[in-house]
């Protein structure tokens, strides 16, 4: 307990917290991406994957609680460091501040982080809690849409595939998603390398490798996530969702009601 307090009270200790929770979240981001990419397989794969997760609470709930804890720690350490950092520079400079070697990503971690955090909240409401109020259908089509009721006809599993397609057909939703994933990628481009720095895993030999790998990884993550809404907007799955059922009732969405799906 004393050790934990020591860690939390010291600036370096909080950086360890940032790095370790950041590392755990990175693993989640990668795993989540791998799961999502099943979207490019026939719909049954991702639906089966979703079904497996939903019916395995002994895996699901610890993961959820763990992730929540990671996010909570990551954010609270970030906020408390930011408050201390602001306090350390009470008067700002008036002179034209050049970036002085700092990248935009490095200087805006707290903002990219906060936008991503707010996105996560939305994302959970949108796809996990599937609140119809946030999926944008009412606003953009005048129709209501309940993702919860989407069921794959063959198996009776929750139709994740259809949910993804329907969700991302709303351009604003896709836009916010792309923006957030972009910011996440920028956040990670700096954050992953910093994680090694904060934990002291760096030397003049390894730093260039770490920094480059972090940048490559962040681009991969961006592409992996962005591929889904982009492909939906380009038309993937539009035939499939033309006759998915929700809560036993057929849903028919006129193609014209939603651009750019055809």
């Amino acid at each position: 307990m004393k050790l934990l307090l020591q860690i939390w009270r010291s600036s370096l200790g909080k950086k360890y917290v940032m790095a370790l929770t950041g590392g755990a979240l990175l693993l989640f981001v990668l795993g989540h991406m791998a799961g999502n990419l099943q979207f490019f397989l026939p719909p049954t794969y991702i639906n089966a994957y979703g079904h497996f997760l939903q019916t395995t609470p002994e895996l699901l709930w610890p993961s959820r609680i763990g992730l929540l804890a990671m996010v909570g720690l990551h954010i609270s350490a970030a906020i408390s460091l930011t408050v201390a950092n602001r306090a350390a520079r009470p008067t700002r400079y008036a002179g034209a501040i050049s970036s002085q070697g700092a990248t935009l990503a490095a200087r805006t971690m707290i903002w990219s982080g906060l936008v991503v955090a707010s996105f996560i909240v939305y994302h959970l409401l949108h796809y996990t809690l599937t609140l119809p109020q946030v999926n944008g259908y009412q606003v953009f089509t005048g129709q209501s849409m309940d993702f919860d009721g989407l069921v794959e006809p063959k198996t009776g599993y929750h139709d994740i595939f259809a949910m993804i397609v329907l969700g991302f057909r709303i351009p604003v939703v896709s836009g916010f998603y792309l923006l957030s994933v972009g910011l996440l990628s920028i956040h990670l481009g700096h954050g992953v390398a910093s994680m090694f720095q904060s934990l002291g895993l760096r030397s003049h030999v390894w730093w260039p490798r770490i920094a480059t790998s972090a940048r490559v990884l962040s681009v991969v993550i961006f592409l992996g996530y962005a591929a889904i809404p982009v492909s939906v907007l380009l038309g993937r799955g539009s035939d499939y969702v033309n006759d998915v059922r929700t809560s036993g009732k057929s849903v028919h969405l006129s193609p014209s009601s939603l651009s750019p799906s055809k």
Partner: peptide, 24 residues
């Protein structure tokens, strides 16, 4: 003093170009 957010500004302005490696 504040905490390090690995921006590298310190290294960039250091008159002796001391490296961030030492912070690690």
């Amino acid at each position: 003093f504040g905490a390090c957010t690995v921006t590298g500004s310190c290294e960039a302005v250091c008159p002796k170009s001391i490296s961030l490696d030492f912070i690690a």
